[in-house]
Design a protein around this nucleic acid. Structure first.
Length: 163
DNA sequence: CCCTGATTCGC
DNA sequence: GCGAATCAGG
């Protein structure tokens, strides 16, 4: 595997989007994390535009509602329909190469699972990085990636959850 | 033990 | 230029 222009461009883009070196390596395929790090240094892009998202935004929800213990009062259990709505899959509309100047860059999915992508919906202004649905989450401070996941799941209108 | 990026240095 | 090995951490 050699660093042709296309692969180098992809590496640069993924890295600047905030993916970790190992995630970039897996997306590219055929290269190790070390190779990616070495290349990044040679390219002089060690300072990232976007901070590392250790797990990006992982949308992985169990398919089955938790089994309630026999003596647990019904009121203490999550309502079944709430569980169902949480199970809706969010679908990215764009891969890294599809992003245009006015595509929402909110990351969706798990880079390790191959379902990674970006929201990709239209941003309000040409220069914005995120669509209206994601701009609030983008500039908010989260404690953990789990919080980002939770926010992502509840932030979109129902009709947009499955495209 | 999982992971992160930084650095070195033989190739 | 490349990247495995190593280092220094979280």
């Amino acid at each position: 595997m050699d660093w042709n222009e296309e692969r180098t461009a992809t590496l640069r883009k993924l890295w600047l989007e905030g993916l970790s070196a190992s995630q970039v390596a897996r997306q590219l395929g055929g290269v190790s994390r070390s190779a990616v790090i070495g290349k990044i240094h040679r390219l002089g892009i060690t300072v990232r535009e976007t901070p590392v998202r250790q797990r990006a935004v992982t949308v992985r929800v169990s398919r089955q509602a938790p089994r309630a213990r026999a003596n647990t009062p019904a009121q203490a259990r999550p309502a079944a329909r709430v569980q169902a709505s949480v199970m809706e899959e969010l679908t990215p509309t764009a891969g890294i190469l599809d992003l245009s100047m006015h595509s929402c860059r909110w990351p969706i999915g798990n880079p390790d699972a191959g379902d990674f992508g970006f929201c990709g919906r239209e941003t309000t202004s040409k220069r914005a990085s995120y669509c209206p649905d994601h701009t609030q989450g983008a500039f908010r401070r989260f404690q953990s990636s789990a919080d980002i996941d939770a926010w992502t799941r509840q932030s979109l209108p129902q009709e947009r959850r499955v495209l």
